[in-house]
Amino acid sequence: MARIIVVTSGKGGVGKTTTSAAIAMGLAKKGHKTAVIDFDVGLRNLDLVLGCERRVVYDFVNVINNEANLNQALIKDKRCNQLYILPASQTRDKDALTKEGVGKVLEELSKTFKYIVCDSPAGIERGANLAMYFADDAFVVTNPEVSSVRDSDRMLGILSSKSKRAELDEEPIKEYLLLSRYDPKRVKLGAMLSVEDVQDILSLHLLGVIPESQSVLSASNAGEPIILDENSDAGQAYADIVDRYLGEDKPHRFIDEEKKGLFGRLFRS
């Protein structure tokens, strides 16, 4: 049986798709057969971030409507043969998704895949609800600012009350916090919520902190998941997150500002 991971946040623009692409690639690179599904029907982005937009023939909605089978729609990644992408439809909207259809696709994927990563759209409407409904684990992506934290909190409430596991009264979805676009310098200046602040508000297990990084934008534009950029701190942060998710005990990084030589250290409070 596959493990279904939903990458969600409530708020838009916090890095769900970047995270989905990175996590899926990370799991696949560890040798686990992984599928990543774009639930953002109508605002298809995941294929761009993964650099396979030119190879899309059929999409998620085609499979749900039985216009294509899964093997026709799944795109095999060229960099890692364990990673498959199921793109969203750009010409439809979220109403094209049905609970039965999504359930059927996930069930079929579960037969051959180890991990299924669901890239949730923003909002708390149909697309986001269906992305999280069947999940086993939830990666809640949050930026260190109040509105993002508030929306994540709302999403956590929905995860614990409206998912399949909640409805069937099974063991609840495992929730993990991913704090993205973190800038220790601004935290120190008091211009950004700290890890502790966010954890205090959300009381959630922290899976990792992804630092604000220029390389994320250039990687997205180039269609390369950031996790493949081993030199970037954001890429390393995602690699750590995958390791931690798979059970490795890795210390948290990128929470404190980098030390600035002797003088910096002397004058640090």
Binding site: R150, D151, D153, R154, L156, G157, I158, S161, I201, S203
Partner: peptide, 22 residues
């Protein structure tokens, strides 16, 4: 109790966790 959630009880309510904003 997360943002957006609403709990109504007839008697006393005891919560051994936080109640989020919203």
């Amino acid at each position: 109790i997360r943002s957006g959630q609403r709990i109504y009880v007839k008697g006393d309510l005891i919560i051994i966790a936080q109640v989020s904003a919203g």
